[in-house]
């Protein structure tokens, strides 16, 4: 299971970000790095690249269902709270696409997967069969506020689909 996100050693509770950094990143995956630095995902990777919890606090399998405990206290840039409904919204939006991920369709969830939200901070992913790569797929599962999706998402409102418009 993914481990809780480690806090940076120098940060204390109540600290607020201070300062500005100018970054030049010529890497061809810069578009992805910007997405990862500005959106939420259930998991992220630590310094060594290991998967750790982000807005997912913990998870466990019940047969072919992955039960995810959503971290409380996470807010989007517009001030709204991230809840299990936010994750379900992102799932429902992206499942409409045939190939949402530029690296390939192996990051897709099975099209027959369903999700339930028994409460604000629990979400259940009901896969047709156990998905050994589910946590890795969570790395590319971008969670956004309702406002993001309502105002166009990844281009779906303008183009009819978000595919190719991350």
């Amino acid at each position: 299971m993914a481990q809780p996100t480690q806090e940076a050693a120098s940060w204390k509770a109540g600290d607020a970000p201070a300062g500005t950094v100018n970054v030049v990143d010529p890497h061809p995956l810069n578009w992805l790095y910007i997405t990862w630095n500005t959106m939420e995902e259930p998991v992220r990777t630590d310094e060594r690249g290991e998967i750790v919890g982000a807005c997912m606090e913990d998870s466990h399998w019940e047969g072919s269902t992955l039960v995810v405990k959503v971290r409380e206290g996470v807010r989007f840039q517009d001030g709204t709270n991230l809840t299990s409904a936010s994750i379900k919204r992102a799932f429902d939006e992206v499942q409409k696409w045939v190939a949402p991920h530029p690296p390939g369709t192996y990051l897709n969830f099975d099209p027959d997967t369903t999700v339930d939200c028994p409460d604000d901070y629990t979400i259940r992913f009901n896969f047709p069969e156990p998905d050994g790569l589910a946590l890795a797929k969570f790395r590319g599962f971008h969670i956004a506020s309702d406002r993001f999706w309502d105002e166009g998402g990844f281009g779906g409102k303008v183009y009819g689909t978000g595919e190719g418009h991350w």
């Binding site: 940076a8 120098s10 201070a18 300062g19 992805l32 790095y33 310094e47 060594r48 690249g49």
Partner: peptide, 16 residues
């Protein structure tokens, strides 16, 4: 203060 990440360019732990 920048912490390098193996899989991405991550800025969440960067401070000045």
């Amino acid at each position: 203060n920048f912490t390098g990440h193996a899989a991405t360019l991550e800025l969440a732990e960067t401070s000045v």
